[in-house]
């Protein structure tokens, strides 16, 4: 079976739910444009209709068809993206991560400062901090894309754009041009790509 590249996004119910979904949708759609086999989906068990509850969104990218498409979780993520930095304190966000994985955090704090809250940081290959809030200015809230619905409000107008840019820079899993073709706020995407601070561990 071919390796499947797994992206897990941690975000919060309602207030940042769409932003989290936008990150995985943008990465999957960009990879699709590059001819990869992709999958982007919400965690089904999280019940994201409660304000602030930690919830997960997943993307899977592969050179071959994805065998376990019908599964609930990314068991061994290559990348974990944190939409709200405070989440690193409340959950073991690196659970199951492959050795040498990358953690991307939306924060204006430094990688060193953020790492203080990650007890199992020896799993990490790198941490990348990007001030997505500062770059995009706002989180969009919309419910049309929940529960398998089609998002009617557009992709990547808020903080997801710089976060996706940061993932592209820190991992190279997709390139910036493919992302620019799918997200609404290209300026924020580009700034996320350029301004992310990557620290190798």
């Amino acid at each position: 079976m071919a390796e499947v590249y797994e992206v897990t996004v941690w975000t919060r119910g309602v207030s940042m739910d769409k932003e989290g979904r936008d990150v995985v949708s943008a990465l999957a759609k960009a990879a699709d444009r590059e001819g990869k086999f992709v999958q982007a989906f919400d965690n089904y068990e999280d019940l994201p209709d409660r304000v602030g509850v930690p919830v997960r969104k997943y993307a899977r990218i592969s050179d071959e068809e994805i065998v376990m498409r019908y599964n609930y979780e990314n068991e061994n993520p290559d990348v974990v993206v944190i939409v709200d930095a405070a989440l690193v304190k409340g959950v073991n966000v690196l659970r199951g991560m492959k050795r040498g994985g990358v953690l991307v955090v939306n924060t204006n704090r430094s990688p060193e400062e953020t790492l203080k809250f990650i007890p199992n940081k020896d799993t990490l290959g790198a941490i990348a901090c990007v001030d997505a809030d500062g770059i995009a200015g706002r989180a969009t809230v919309d419910f049309s894309g929940t529960e398998g619905g089609v998002d009617a409000s557009g992709l990547g107008a808020g903080i997801a754009a710089p976060l996706a840019g940061a993932v592209a820079k820190a991992t190279g899993v997709v390139n910036l041009e493919s992302l620019a073709a799918v997200v609404a706020n290209r300026e924020a995407l580009k700034r996320g790509y350029e301004e992310v601070v990557v620290k190798t561990i």
């Binding site: 999958q39 982007a40 989906f41 919400d42 089904y44 498409r69 019908y70 609930y72 398998g148």
Partner: peptide, 11 residues
């Protein structure tokens, strides 16, 4: 169709 597997995962 199966809930979640087919209903929620895009194809």
């Amino acid at each position: 169709h199966d809930g979640y597997f087919v209903s929620h995962i895009p194809g």
